Simulated scan of single mutants.
Amino acid sequence: MSNSISKIPFARIKVAYVAGFLSIFFSLFSWVGFGILNLDSQPYALMFWLFFLGMSYRFVKFPKLLLLPLIFAYLGFFLATLADLSSLDINLLGRAGFNYLSFYIIFIGFYNFISRFGVPINLLWFALFLWAMGALAEIFYPEVMSILSPRRTTSDRGLTSFAPEPTFFAVFSIFVLWIICCHYSYSRRIVVLSLFTSLVFVVVLAKSTMGILFLSIFLVFIFLYVTLKKWVSWKDPFLLLATAFSVLAIPYFGAQYFSNASDINRIGVVVKSVFLEGKYLDIFLSDASMNSRLEDVVFSFHGFFMNLGMPGGGFELL
């Protein structure tokens, strides 16, 4: 009897690990719905995270840094509900509350899985490989990818792989590669491999102008970190100058290359405006994707305050 009881915690830990592993897997493919639900974000990852937390309820840690945002979010949610009871929509109210709650559930799930089992770095590499294979499959069988996940793109844009849009594909790739770089403490070999992989994913496959903007920011932080802290010693001026030359030369020659196709290539228009003409703000006017994302940021903050913290569409206070 005691032997069987002693085996229960180990069995629960194994089940919890499998549930957490599947949660992360579906989180890495959050747009894949297998044609069942026509939604951008699918519920499968959240379902597995709830199961993981349920199996780990004795060991769940709640990060203190989430406490204040959680209180603030639901206080605003409650006040907004009281402010407009006359036009209350139960469906929108439930959807808004669930979306708020799902963020905290997934965050707590990731926090507890990584605290107990570490970062599943091999799963991240495997996910990137599958995303690359999905993009290549899209070239020959685009209808197959549209069955797995919703697609909102046109023939003149890049590949989407398992995402609805090329921009989502590019941003997801950069984010995962950034996690990998952090995991390996910006090892030189990993950073070089990550930069090469990100260039292939963002420029060659996704062809996303917004992705290139994020990639540029990513490159700036990478070079600042590795130049000032990791690789280059101030006692080695040749290596320091070579690194600085690379940072300046790559964007310039890249701009020269892309500008030759600026009439038909969205990337060429953006790169030419920034690096050759110095029109930094014009990129948000010339590129529809960047303009839409800037609009989302500006109006999201404006709507957040005007709607008393409610998600967009929850109430008509704006």
Rank of each mutant, 00 (worst) to 15 (best):
Q256V: 07
L224P: 00
L241W: 15
C181E: 13
Q256K: 12
F245T: 12
K207N: 00
R266N: 15
L177H: 08
S161M: 06
P164K: 08
R188F: 14
V270T: 10
L159R: 11
S185G: 13
T197S: 11
R189K: 10
S262L: 14
L219V: 02
L248Y: 10
F245R: 12
F201G: 01
F245P: 05
S161H: 00
N260W: 14
S194D: 01
Q256S: 06
L213D: 07
S185Y: 13
G254R: 03
I180L: 06
L199I: 04
W231M: 08
L213Y: 06
S208G: 02
G268S: 04
P251K: 01
L219D: 06
F196Q: 12
P166T: 07
Y184N: 07
S259R: 12
R266S: 15
A261T: 15
P164Q: 11
T167Q: 14
S187G: 15
T243W: 10
C181A: 13
T243V: 12
F238Y: 14
S208I: 01
T209V: 05
S194H: 02
I250F: 02
V247Q: 05
S194R: 02
L213C: 01
F223I: 05
F162M: 06
F168W: 13
K235Y: 09
Y225L: 10
I212Q: 11
H183N: 12
L239D: 13
S194T: 07
V176H: 07
Y252I: 02
E165M: 13
S173A: 13
Y257T: 09
I217C: 06
V191H: 08
E165I: 09
I250A: 12
P166S: 04
V204R: 03
Y252R: 11
K230H: 03
C181W: 08
I174Q: 04
F168Y: 13
V204G: 00
R189E: 10
L239K: 13
V171N: 12
S208N: 01
V200E: 05
T227W: 08
M210Y: 07
N265L: 11
T209W: 00
K235M: 10
F253M: 06
P237N: 11
F218H: 08
K229C: 09
V204D: 06
R266D: 15
V220M: 07
F169G: 03
R266T: 12
V202T: 01
Y186Q: 09
V220C: 01
V192Q: 13
F245L: 13
V191M: 03
F253Y: 15
T167K: 13
L240Q: 05
S246T: 12
Q256L: 15
W178N: 14
L159M: 02
S262G: 09
T243A: 14
L248M: 12
N260S: 14
F201M: 09
S259V: 06
S233I: 01
S187R: 09
V203I: 03
I264L: 14
G211Q: 02
L193Y: 08
A170N: 03
T167C: 04
